[in-house]
Nucleic acid binder design. Structure first.
Length: 964
DNA sequence: GAGCACTGC
């Protein structure tokens, strides 16, 4: 040990060795001892990264930014934080932060490192969205990337961190990319204030040029350190031919071959979706029956079944144990795939499908060992997912049929064979309209290699690629970074909240497409989150955040939803909006019952469950005014009912709800409630598990709130007279799309077909379908969505009027919806700016509407105040004098007039010399606790409220605030 | 009248 810790804690940043540039080095001179158990010490020494400790630490000591490349299994995630800790980077109250792209990783890594270091979780801790165990003593903190991004909002310099490690940077998740961009600026800023911060970017692949060779990101190229992985060799076999369509069938044949011919070891199959996974499971179970497989997954462990199984094992003792020696296999290294040689190999071992009479396996039972077939995909219930981590029943071979979850998120033990169809199902977004669709595409080479790697975790393995090496060579080297193919409005709002106005200048490792940036900025302006700059094109993409935007940015949900929350203080809607927003944010609340079943029995069961869900959804949708809230009411009803019942797995199971989703909704409601409470102290909000359904009036307000957030997602039913083509039957038109869109058949409004609706999203399948639909009244549109409406001249009838609450001139204006020019009902709005507004103001002033006292002079006036509006009024000097005085003082409303008087009591604007003017304000007796008129609901006779808030939250002014 | 991979605040 070098020096006692205590001595050094006061001066941990004292330079020990001068770097070439003579910059202050932040190399701490401490060695902090760690008390590891002998077993852990032994296991650690086997990790290749241990040998690189000195190289890594020297690089970190001498450079502010270091890139470490090491594949899965190199131990970089668990060991680098320990190196830093031992080198004293956490002394003097600085902590080490490590970001992970997934919650489970943050939690499990913190636990593992705590165990390895023999330290309490009070010292090695984690923080994820809803929970954490961070304390004052925390020195190593694992967190999800989004958590660190939020922390930057509170403390731009991240002053409590000595080191930030961005793990899994090769995955190029959106937050990781942004974090790296931000940290590239934070590191030099910290250098300036002489509190150096170390940034370590860790990647599993060598694709780091986006980071290292991007001068705008890092002006000095950071050193890249490579670390070997402790992986077993995986032999890759390419197919000679690439099946055009039926990769699923090809998977089936390959699994059959492997199972019949090759020694024991688990098989992992990569497919693209739930339906494929289930149908392959079904075929495989039929081909290699294992009694329980075929019936019900849940009964698997019953004593009876195990007894049966043992019996069958005895019976099959002599059959088809693999006789092939794997060592005789001609190996084909990963990068030298030769399809001909490979095909030979295949034939040597397994012969062709024809020789073996593999058929499609549906016809006959096979005599091989039972195959223990399990499906695996993200939306599968956790307890069913968990099965893949347990050893398969004795005497069986494990075969997991998975989607892409198994590529990065979940690691299955005991896999020796990987079957890779080479495809992935991806979500695509239209950059301008935001319409999304799912398409099956080829994976990238990096992805294929990652999949292959899953075969070599515990022993040497094999990967069977169901495509030729030529096809593989045509794959993209890497998948596109997430930020380039997703809407970015949430990201842009976060950046603007950090006062990054010119987002185009941000050092993105890879920038999003310009169209996506423009669409995001446009949406945020329409939501009122950004201040619109009227100046030329140059102002594009550099609008500053508005006070409303700042409030919205504190809500951890999509900007459209954040806007809804910001509006919902009115009429006690917040608990409902929070619930609806939570439900819309959590994906797939409802169980999917349309998948192919394993057995006839299961088919019937699924059918029953589906019918039950449809029935209960109708109940949740409610009646009358509630029903018009549509699918959002169903979500609200589902969450309400579930929480009322205590959110039990049983209730979820019986009512077609995904338990995991409901738990997530519960936690999100908690988080949003806290966020709303801190944005606005006087709400006194709490999460009520026994929340009552909204009243009819509240449901109507909720529809208006939803409209205000989803204004760009408005659709109008195609009118009978516009029906030129059959394809437009029951169709809707939207502002941005030329093609017809339809209400999704699963929507409770599917048969109602309201004239106007808003939708949560449009997904393109066989048609363009709107999902998450809610009905809208036409008169709300101009009142709540002025940015999307073009207004016409004020109407003469009803005539303009003076509003005593706001002191402004009001009028009715007709309008049309942008781009599509839908005629909208005339609505009452503030009179548009201009000379006419002064004229009306003068008239109402003379009539005594503005200042009560002046009313008494009305009869003394020489002519009627109405002449203020006549075109010939100019001819009358006294009216013209008044008008000019008002214009000169910019007085076209009461507040301006009162201000002008205050500043200059002799102001010519009709000064009242006998005393202070008294504005004609409504007295409490006339209107109890009247809300501000702009957010005041209006009631049409005999109907629920029809107009509601544009209520803009008032808070402090925005503007650039440099980091402290 | 339907078919959606995977994540993070």
């Amino acid at each position: 040990m070098k020096k006692p810790v205590a001595d050094q804690q006061a001066v941990p940043t004292a330079p020990v060795c001068q770097t070439a540039s003579n910059k202050p080095s932040c190399k701490p001179v401490i060695f902090v001892p760690v008390d590891r158990s002998p077993e852990i010490q032994e296991a650690r020494l086997k990790l290749p990264i241990l040998a690189e400790e000195q190289v890594i630490m020297e690089a970190i000591n001498e450079n502010p930014i270091v890139v470490i490349c090491g594949e899965t299994g190199s131990g970089k995630t668990t060991q680098v934080p320990q190196f830093l800790y031992e080198a004293g980077y956490t002394s003097s109250n600085g902590i080490i932060g490590i970001t992970e792209p997934r919650r489970v990783a943050a939690v499990s890594m913190s636990q593992r490192v705590a165990k390895e270091m023999n330290l309490s979780h009070r010292v090695v801790s984690y923080q994820i969205r809803y929970e954490g165990n961070v304390t004052d003593e925390t020195q190593i903190k694992f967190m999800t990337d989004g958590v660190l991004l939020k922390e930057i909002q509170k403390d731009f310099l991240l002053s409590k961190y000595k080191v930030v490690i961005i793990d899994e940077a090769h995955e190029r998740s959106m937050y990781t990319d942004i974090l790296i961009g931000l940290l590239s600026r934070i590191v030099p800023l910290r250098e300036k204030v002489r509190m150096p911060l170390k940034l370590i970017v860790m990647s599993a692949t060598l694709r780091v040029e986006d980071f290292t060779e991007n001068n705008r990101l890092f002006s000095v190229t950071p050193p890249v350190i490579q670390v070997d992985a402790r992986q077993f060799p995986v032999t890759v076999h390419f197919n000679k031919k690439t099946p055009l369509d039926d990769y699923s069938g090809e998977c089936f044949r390959k699994v059959c071959k492997i199972h019949r011919m090759l020694p024991s070891g688990g098989i992992l199959v990569f497919l693209t979706g739930q339906a494929e996974v289930h149908s392959l499971c079904r075929r495989l179970r039929k081909a290699f029956p294992f009694q329980k497989n075929n019936i019900d997954d849940d009964k698997e462990e019953s004593v009876e079944e195990i007894r049966k199984f043992k019996k069958s094992r005895k019976r099959k003792k002599t059959t088809a144990l693999p006789q092939i020696d794997l060592d005789n296999y001609s190996v084909v290294p990963v990068d030298e795939g030769d399809e001909d040689r490979d095909a030979e190999t295949d034939d040597d071992i397994a012969g062709s499908d024809v020789d073996l009479d593999l058929g499609d396996g549906d016809s006959e039972e096979d005599s091989s060992l039972p195959l223990y077939v399990l499906p695996l995909y993200s939306l599968l219930a956790p307890e069913k997912q968990a099965k893949v981590f347990r050893p398969p029943p004795p005497g069986t071979r494990l075969c997991v049929v998975a989607t892409n979850v198994a590529e990065t998120s979940l690691t299955i033990p005991g896999i020796k064979y990987v079957v890779d169809c080479g495809k992935v199902k991806k979500r695509f977004y239209d950059k301008i309209t935001g319409v999304s669709s799912f398409r099956v595409t080829w994976i990238s080479q990096a992805s294929a290699n990652q999949r292959a790697g899953r075969a070599g975790r515990t022993e040497p393995g094999h990967c069977y690629r169901l495509y030729s090496s030529a096809v593989f060579m045509d794959f993209e080297k890497f998948s596109a970074p997430e930020i380039t193919n997703r809407p970015v409005e949430d990201l842009i709002l976060q950046m603007k909240a950090l006062n990054i106005e010119k987002v185009i200048n941000f050092p993105f490792p890879t920038p999003p497409p310009a169209e996506a940036l423009a669409a995001a900025e446009e949406l945020l302006i329409a939501l009122g989150a950004l201040k619109e700059l009227k100046e030329q094109q140059a102002a594009k993409l550099s609008c500053p955040i508005s006070p409303l935007g700042r409030v919205m940015a504190t809500f951890p949900v999509a900007p459209r939803y954040a806007k809804m929350l910001a509006l919902s203080k009115q009429h006690d809607c917040l608990p409902y909006t929070i619930t609806i927003v939570s439900a819309m944010t959590v994906r797939e609340l409802f169980e999917e019952f349309d998948r192919p079943a394993v057995s006839e029995e299961e088919t019937a069961k699924l059918k029953g469950k589906k019918a039950r869900l449809l029935q209960i959804q109708k109940i949740w949708a409610g009646q009358g005014a509630l029903q018009k809230l549509g699918d959002l009411m169903v979500m609200l009803g589902a969450v309400g009912a579930c929480e009322y019942a205590g959110c039990t797995p049983k209730f979820c199971e019986e009512n077609g709800l995904r338990y995991k989703a409901m738990l997530e909704v519960r936690r999100l409601r908690g988080q949003l409630t806290t966020a709303v409470n801190s944005a606005c102290a006087d709400t006194g909000l709490y999460v009520d598990p026994k929340m009552k359904p909204p009243t009819e009036a509240q449901a109507t307000y909720l529809r208006q709130i939803v409209l205000a957030g989803l204004g760009d997602h408005l659709a109008r039913r195609v009118q009978a007279e516009e029906l030129l083509d059959e394809k437009w039957k029951n169709a809707y038109k939207t502002a941005l799309l030329d093609d017809p869109v339809f209400i999704h058949p699963s929507s409770v409004l599917f048969k109602q077909l309201p004239e106007f609706v808003v939708y949560q999203e449009i997904v393109e399948t066989t048609k363009l379908y709107m999902r998450g639909v809610s009905a809208v009244e036409p008169e709300w549109i101009p009142a709540l969505l002025p940015p999307y409406c073009h207004f016409g001249k004020p109407l003469e009838n009803p005539p303009p009027s003076y509003c005593p609450e706001t002191g402004r001139i009001r009028c009715h204006r007709p309008s049309v919806f942008y781009r599509v020019s839908w005629q909208l009902p005339a609505v009452e709005v503030d009179y548009p700016e201009g000379i006419d507004r002064y004229k009306y103001f003068a008239r109402f002033l003379l009539e005594g509407e503005v200042i009560e006292k002046l009313g008494s002079y009305k009869r003394c006036l020489l002519s009627s105040p109405l002449i203020m509006l006549k075109t010939w009024s100019k001819l009358q000097p006294r009216t013209e004098a008044l008008l000019q005085a008002l214009v000169a003082e910019k007085c076209d409303n009461r507040d301006a007039l009162l201000d002008a008087w205050k500043k200059n009591p002799k102001c010519k604007c009709f000064a009242d010399r006998r005393g202070k003017p008294r504005p004609a304000r409504p007295t409490p007796s006339r209107r109890q606790r009247a809300p501000p008129a702009r957010s005041r609901p209006k009631r049409a006779a005999g109907r629920a409220p029809t107009g509601a808030g544009r209520g803009r939250i008032r808070s402090q002014r925005g503007g650039f605030r440099p980091p402290k």
